[in-house]
Design a protein around this nucleic acid. Structure first.
Lengths: 211, 211
DNA sequence: GTTCAATTGTGAATTTTTGCACATAGTAGG
DNA sequence: CCTACTATGTGCAAAAATTCACAATTGAAC
């Protein structure tokens, strides 16, 4: 197989999923894991695990399983999390603040190099992580100077699209949007919209009394 | 059609998606919308919109489109967002605080009735939204008393599974987990794991230099 | 009241994703 | 070296989801 051309999108999502328990296993000194056990830890089918991995190569040993350390390294290579990524965040409200201070991002190589807000009362405030909040008017200049690749949006909804356009014009390649609107990007720029209430509505649908 | 039995999971996700622009349209006095326009606003295929809606009934008028107000009402009925839901949150760090204070939840009928933390220094602190942080030891009692249906977890990862078990034993029907671990629930209880870094890794994969 | 343009609802075709089932290959014990 | 056991990698079938394409219906214009 080994054709990068037709990798299912869900496969990529699951690779990220697999890497979480693998990190734990590595920390706990587990050397080898089978597709059955890994699948169980992630709540998926074992054949799925094997097939997902097989898209990228043969990482296992028949009769044995997968070397935890090797497998984790391969997954990180595939997902490009074996390097650092330069991020910026726009909108330092409660959520924006929680995101920029989140150790979890940093630990995985996602580093916030700039934080922006359009509220003059917030500009120049120094965040716990050490960043100084810059005015939104500096977005283009700083994104270019710092070679920022991914923009994170945590503004109120009515500003999200404007900020998206600005970030894209400034050269970011992808956007992670937490504002509760579907922002649109031109061909070639990637956007992920994360809307917590969509997740809640999904839960609510499934636990509600049937119609 | 109209068989609730076999509704695709992605259809439910999209219904929530459709409701966002519909709310805007309603506010802006737009009375009618076609599947083509709605699909365009949500970045999906028009046939998809029609098929998704058709699972639940015939809400449109041929040659005309969908009445915005009616359609929104139907979607809310389907997703059970035409009622209020009782939530609690466990873990009042930066993220937990951002979630509990988030106006967006409240506006859609998701109301936090209790907030818990295991850190004695945080217990009894009063949040901006008016809630007083309670010790984790009160979870079972309060979840029962307040008839809380959905639990939101924003604890550090190593506590998430324990809290999940506790919440389920206390009677919540679903859990929205923001801790970066895959928590597991017994048969019958629903869990959504929201991991921001998975979303970032997905973006990173797609914008990275090919292997 | 006839025609035309618009738009839904849906059967059928297509594409995508998942899962089974088994040949293949490695390990361990005697 | 042979047997028994384990676990991967994958062809193929099944299932799920998406998209096409068109008949059916509506409103509007003349």
């Amino acid at each position: 197989m080994n054709k990068t051309s037709k990798i299912p999108v869900p496969t990529i999502e699951r690779l990220a999923l697999y890497s979480r328990p693998l990190e734990n296993l590595l920390d706990n000194g587990v050397l080898v894991i089978s597709s059955v056990k890994l699948a169980d830890l992630c709540g998926v089918n074992p054949a799925q695990v094997r097939k997902d991995l097989a898209y990228f190569g043969e990482f296992g040993t028949r009769g044995v399983g997968y070397d935890v350390q090797d497998l984790l390294k391969e997954i990180k290579r595939i997902l490009a999390t074996d390097r650092e990524w330069a991020l910026c965040i726009v909108g330092i409200g409660n959520l924006g603040n929680a995101l920029v201070e989140n150790e979890n991002f940093r630990k995985r190589g996602y580093k916030f190099l700039a934080a922006f807000d359009s509220d003059p009362r917030k500009v120049n405030r120094v965040l716990y992580c050490g960043l100084t909040i810059k005015p939104a008017s500096k977005i283009t200049q700083l994104v270019r100077e710092l070679h920022i690749e991914i923009g994170v949006i945590a503004t109120p909804p009515f500003e999200a699209q404007k900020v998206t356009n600005l970030l894209i014009d400034s050269g970011v390649k992808a956007i992670l949007n937490f504002a509760p609107v579907q922002v649109r990007a031109p061909e070639g720029c990637l956007v992920e919209n994360v809307d917590f209430t969509v997740r809640l509505e999904n839960l609510a649908y499934h636990i509600r009394e049937p119609l």
